Amino acid sequence: MFYPNSPQTSPQLTQIPYGQQYAMMQRQIQQPYHPFATTEPQARLYPYHYQGPIQQEQGGFITQQSTAASPQYVQMRVTPVDQSIMSGYPNQTANGSSSSSFNYNIHPQQQQQQQQQQQQLRHHAMPVGSVPLQDDRYRKQLIVNYLAPDVTSTDLHELFSRFGELDGARIIYDKQTNMSKGYGFVYFCHAEDAKEAVERMSGYEFHGKWLKVGYSTNPLNIVPSNSSPYVHAGSRGAAG
């Protein structure tokens, strides 16, 4: 039997160049792979992502010199942007860049009308829970959420009447099932009393439920100042 490094198959040491006398086997001759043993700084910083320098080929596509990437890492192929796409944008300079302001050559009167329309939209648009300043009635009506099913309009009136005089209180019921929808409205005579009720009743436990109280901004629920107070009856038909 002959071994790869046996004296019968191995040459004389004098015939082997210096430095390879003890590297006779194939696994010894093959050098191990060192990912950080390279002179390129990109490979030292990113050993798993770097795959060699990027070269520009004919046709405008950018390719990489090395083989496919590892399945664990996804390499994105980048193509140059066609400058003709950006030619339609206004205020574009000769080098292809555009300024931040756009001039669509709008007539001054049209621009003024658009600004007025935007101001009107901001004036009428009102986020949930906010209180408008032009109508004091919005500051007097509250919406009470997360009410228990057994709470009546009379219970709601008695709960909030300790903060001040009320114009009314009612629970909203479903017309088909005649069941409470879980929320109601309270109408105060003074805005200061309503503000105190919002601050003190939010998070209050009532009939096993934690109440959420806020201003009601729905104009359909506003009680006119010259109208008669609501009837605080315990029956659902009268309260709904």
Rank of each mutant, 00 (worst) to 15 (best):
residue 134 Q to K: 13
residue 239 A to D: 05
residue 149 P to N: 02
residue 220 L to F: 02
residue 159 L to S: 00
residue 67 T to G: 13
residue 143 I to L: 02
residue 201 M to F: 06
residue 55 Q to I: 04
residue 178 N to L: 15
residue 73 Y to F: 12
residue 138 Y to V: 02
residue 65 Q to E: 05
residue 11 P to E: 06
residue 7 P to F: 07
residue 2 F to W: 09
residue 49 H to E: 10
residue 4 P to A: 12
residue 15 Q to K: 14
residue 171 I to K: 02
residue 105 N to G: 09
residue 142 L to K: 01
residue 35 P to Y: 03
residue 43 A to S: 13
residue 20 Q to G: 15
residue 53 P to E: 11
residue 158 E to N: 13
residue 197 A to D: 02
residue 130 S to F: 10
residue 164 G to S: 00
residue 152 T to H: 15
residue 219 P to G: 01
residue 58 Q to D: 09
residue 169 A to Q: 10
residue 57 E to H: 11
residue 207 H to E: 02
residue 26 Q to H: 09
residue 139 R to I: 14
residue 233 A to L: 12
residue 174 D to N: 07
residue 127 P to V: 06
residue 137 R to H: 04
residue 111 Q to K: 11
residue 111 Q to M: 07
residue 69 A to T: 11
residue 154 T to R: 01
residue 94 A to G: 09
residue 165 E to C: 15
residue 118 Q to I: 10
residue 187 Y to Q: 01
residue 162 R to V: 15
residue 158 E to S: 11
residue 42 Q to F: 06
residue 107 H to S: 07
residue 235 S to P: 14
residue 11 P to N: 05
residue 39 T to S: 12
residue 87 S to C: 12
residue 203 G to E: 02
residue 240 G to T: 04
residue 46 Y to H: 15
residue 208 G to L: 02
residue 65 Q to M: 03
residue 98 S to Q: 10
residue 238 A to W: 12
residue 20 Q to V: 02
residue 46 Y to Q: 14
residue 133 L to D: 08
residue 31 Q to C: 03
residue 87 S to W: 03
residue 214 G to T: 06
residue 76 M to R: 15
residue 119 Q to I: 07
residue 201 M to K: 02
residue 155 D to M: 05
residue 215 Y to F: 04
residue 208 G to V: 02
residue 41 P to Q: 14
residue 168 G to W: 08
residue 14 T to L: 04
residue 60 G to S: 09
residue 48 Y to W: 04
residue 123 H to P: 06
residue 51 Q to K: 14
residue 82 D to P: 12
residue 174 D to F: 15
residue 222 I to W: 04
residue 18 Y to W: 04
residue 162 R to Y: 15
residue 205 E to I: 15
residue 146 Y to C: 02
residue 72 Q to C: 10
residue 176 Q to I: 10
residue 123 H to G: 08
residue 191 A to G: 04
residue 159 L to N: 00
residue 144 V to N: 01
residue 32 P to A: 04
residue 37 A to D: 11
residue 11 P to I: 03
residue 183 Y to L: 01
residue 228 S to N: 14
residue 158 E to K: 11
residue 24 M to T: 14
residue 180 S to N: 04
residue 25 M to Y: 06
residue 184 G to R: 01
residue 110 Q to I: 10
residue 194 A to T: 08
residue 150 D to W: 15
residue 210 W to Q: 02
residue 170 R to Q: 02
residue 216 S to L: 00
residue 222 I to S: 02
residue 75 Q to D: 11
residue 16 I to L: 10
residue 11 P to T: 09
residue 179 M to T: 13
residue 93 T to I: 10
residue 183 Y to D: 00
residue 13 L to C: 06
residue 113 Q to Y: 11
residue 4 P to W: 02
residue 114 Q to I: 11
residue 94 A to E: 05
residue 133 L to E: 07
residue 118 Q to W: 11
residue 50 Y to I: 10
residue 105 N to Y: 04
residue 229 P to F: 12
residue 101 S to A: 08
residue 128 V to Q: 06
residue 27 R to I: 02
residue 239 A to H: 09
residue 64 Q to C: 04
residue 172 I to N: 00
residue 56 Q to H: 11
residue 138 Y to E: 02
residue 189 C to Q: 10
residue 29 I to M: 10
residue 106 I to N: 07
residue 24 M to Y: 08
residue 219 P to H: 01
residue 83 Q to F: 04
residue 215 Y to A: 02
residue 92 Q to N: 08
residue 47 P to V: 00
residue 36 F to M: 07
residue 138 Y to A: 03
residue 135 D to P: 04
residue 51 Q to H: 11
residue 83 Q to N: 10
residue 5 N to Q: 08
residue 109 Q to F: 08
residue 147 L to V: 07
residue 12 Q to I: 04
residue 71 P to D: 14
residue 133 L to W: 12
residue 183 Y to Q: 01
residue 210 W to M: 02
residue 108 P to W: 13
residue 106 I to C: 11
residue 235 S to A: 11
residue 213 V to E: 00
residue 218 N to H: 03
residue 87 S to G: 09
residue 104 Y to C: 09
residue 182 G to K: 02
residue 200 R to D: 03
residue 160 F to T: 00
residue 33 Y to F: 10
residue 66 S to L: 06
residue 201 M to S: 02
residue 171 I to A: 03
residue 109 Q to E: 04
residue 157 H to T: 14
residue 61 F to L: 13
residue 118 Q to D: 07
residue 49 H to L: 04
residue 46 Y to S: 14
residue 149 P to V: 07
residue 82 D to H: 12
residue 39 T to P: 11
residue 196 E to S: 08
residue 124 H to D: 04
residue 199 E to W: 15
residue 76 M to K: 15
residue 237 G to R: 11
residue 195 K to R: 15
residue 135 D to T: 05
residue 144 V to P: 01
residue 191 A to M: 14
residue 121 L to V: 09
residue 44 R to K: 15
residue 185 F to W: 01
residue 30 Q to D: 15
residue 28 Q to A: 05
residue 236 R to G: 04
residue 20 Q to I: 03
residue 64 Q to A: 08
residue 97 S to L: 07
residue 61 F to W: 03
residue 236 R to P: 07
residue 133 L to C: 09
residue 22 Y to K: 15
residue 199 E to L: 11
residue 181 K to Q: 03
residue 44 R to E: 03
residue 43 A to I: 03
residue 235 S to G: 11
residue 94 A to K: 14
residue 162 R to I: 15
residue 146 Y to M: 01
residue 195 K to S: 13
residue 103 N to C: 05
residue 68 A to F: 11
residue 132 P to W: 02
residue 219 P to Q: 06
residue 8 Q to P: 11
residue 225 S to K: 13
residue 236 R to C: 10
residue 120 Q to L: 09
residue 149 P to I: 10
residue 239 A to R: 14
residue 13 L to A: 12
residue 73 Y to Q: 13
residue 9 T to E: 10
residue 115 Q to E: 09
residue 155 D to W: 02
residue 144 V to G: 01
residue 76 M to Y: 13
residue 56 Q to Y: 04
residue 129 G to R: 11
residue 117 Q to M: 10
residue 167 D to G: 02
residue 205 E to Q: 07
residue 153 S to I: 05
residue 52 G to T: 10
residue 115 Q to K: 12
